[in-house]
Design a binder for these strands. Sequence first.
DNA 1: CTGAAAGCGCTTACAG
DNA 2: CTGAAAGCGCTTACAG
Lengths: 346, 346
Amino acid sequence: MPSPPALPADPPPRPASRVAVTVHDVARATGVSAMTVSRVLRTPQQVSERTRLAVQEAVRALGYVPNLVANGLRSSRSNLVSALVPTVQGSLFSGMVGALTEALERRGFQLTVGQIGYGRSREDDLLRAIVGRRPDGIVLTGILHSPESRTMLAASGIPVVETWDATDDPIDMLLRVSHDAIGRAVCDYLHARGKRRLAVLTGGDPRALRRADGLAARAAERGLAGPPVHLLDSPTTHRHGREGLRALLAATPGVDGVFCSSDLMAGGVLTEARALGIAVPEQLAVVGFGDLDFAATLLPSLTSVHIDGAAIGALAADMIAARADGAAVAERTVDIAHRIVPRDSA
Amino acid sequence: MPSPPALPADPPPRPASRVAVTVHDVARATGVSAMTVSRVLRTPQQVSERTRLAVQEAVRALGYVPNLVANGLRSSRSNLVSALVPTVQGSLFSGMVGALTEALERRGFQLTVGQIGYGRSREDDLLRAIVGRRPDGIVLTGILHSPESRTMLAASGIPVVETWDATDDPIDMLLRVSHDAIGRAVCDYLHARGKRRLAVLTGGDPRALRRADGLAARAAERGLAGPPVHLLDSPTTHRHGREGLRALLAATPGVDGVFCSSDLMAGGVLTEARALGIAVPEQLAVVGFGDLDFAATLLPSLTSVHIDGAAIGALAADMIAARADGAAVAERTVDIAHRIVPRDSA
DNA sequence: CTGAAAGCGCTTACAG
DNA sequence: CTGAAAGCGCTTACAG
């Protein structure tokens, strides 16, 4: 089946990587000083039209692209913001990343996205590499684990926004999501629909575990049996949902409501329920997390917990931009609401 | 339903962002020169143990994090690689990004991921921002449209790897994927299974359209009716699949095989077929693209086109690392194979 | 409106 | 094994 066309003849060798063009090259070509070139690029209204046009022409002719590294070193603003997410896979955070990218771009910042993974091993190294580039802001997804990382960030003086989690001791700014409250709300939601034998299928990331704990705590308050919690690897997939449901029912027959730590996994649970001939939601209610795009169009459609990632991204951009402009941020902790979107699966 | 706990009292104000610690601060604290501090950090074996320990202690005590911006300006290596993808959403490229991240990290490079969007408007600006930071390499997903961008990249002297597409005129290095060949292969695959009335549901990105063209060209060679091509927005979702199938069947009843431009959309087609009582694959064969994780566990499982994104990422990292070390890359164009993974849906 | 000088924080290249 | 000087490519701050 793999039949890519034959390799074409290699193109002619590429010219040896020439030394990049600098302000001085442009200045020399135009007969002005480097400063004037810099002004044409940054504050063109301060330069006479004649000079401006000549410089612009030389910039074009030489293909000059200003070195932002040098710029960032001299002026102490990098126009760079770094975001750290557990993983770009799974798209739970893509709404946030998209909104952040757009809001920052409008303000002249560039966003770089780093993947921190669900383990903690790379955290310190990655953070050192990021802090070393002196970004104008750092957006973290979740709370950092290592004290070293927290100290390094605090000492760097770089504005930091922690998101998607709750903590009593934020490094700097916080967009607060209470996973405990979400777990409790899901318990109440399922209880209100007559479900009494709840269970949790969850990946191992700390936020998902906190949701599981919240649900369990609330179940205990309501006098329900301690819900079984099935732990799976992160990031969770459709396969986890299928296998997880089978394992769950084998271990605990009679479960009538399950809270999944991702929509993808919840989709797998729906598929497995269909394969096993289990009626959803009558015999088994299913709740997902993330309210991703496909939740609404699955069959049955998936009840899921929605968190406004786009709002998180936009708020984080506001906070960082304000700080970069030297302004204070009045509300350094902002609560982000969640809501359960009721659909056919629960 | 939205009931986040009450706001906690704001934490004590953060210390005014102190000026960052530099080599000179460490040098002063230790009573050595800045050069010696630099050596302790980069080539510790060149420094006496006594000095080394003292400097390391000061580094720790002061929380010194070397400024990589200054480093990158002086030494002409940034240890930074930039990748551009249409979008991180949809996870088609997450295998590539993951492998790229890992392979580069092992070699001491940091990866930044930029989203170029499926439109072309941001391309030039984004590329200028990237080239301006003088990365040691740039990985592009797909072929750039604008001549300005291509000229700027070529003039920059930065190693460039174009991926996920085919072109006769690569900017520099190329990991070649032939979407035309994929479209043709899918046509042959469906034809071999007795399907004669084919159709395409596709997003508008250029590579997906090239696959549609390839399928159409092959269908014409085989004397099949010109397959209807239904065009949808990119990135395509589960919803697109459901709505697209309905529209397709309304416009062209009797279609017996459909090639979708993404697995997510193909999943939607499977769902809609179930809702409409259409037997898959007997009445309608469905082929996806990407062979994402969930393709194997859908019900019926999804036949899909697999491209080894992890191999693309690893190869791109090899090529860029070689160039950064001043080595030549012998094979500047490498073909990336595709294969159709046969499952129950077709 | 324009420019000469200095410096951002490092490391290269040289000298000892 | 260690350091003084110079410079990477810009822009700030000053002067005219």
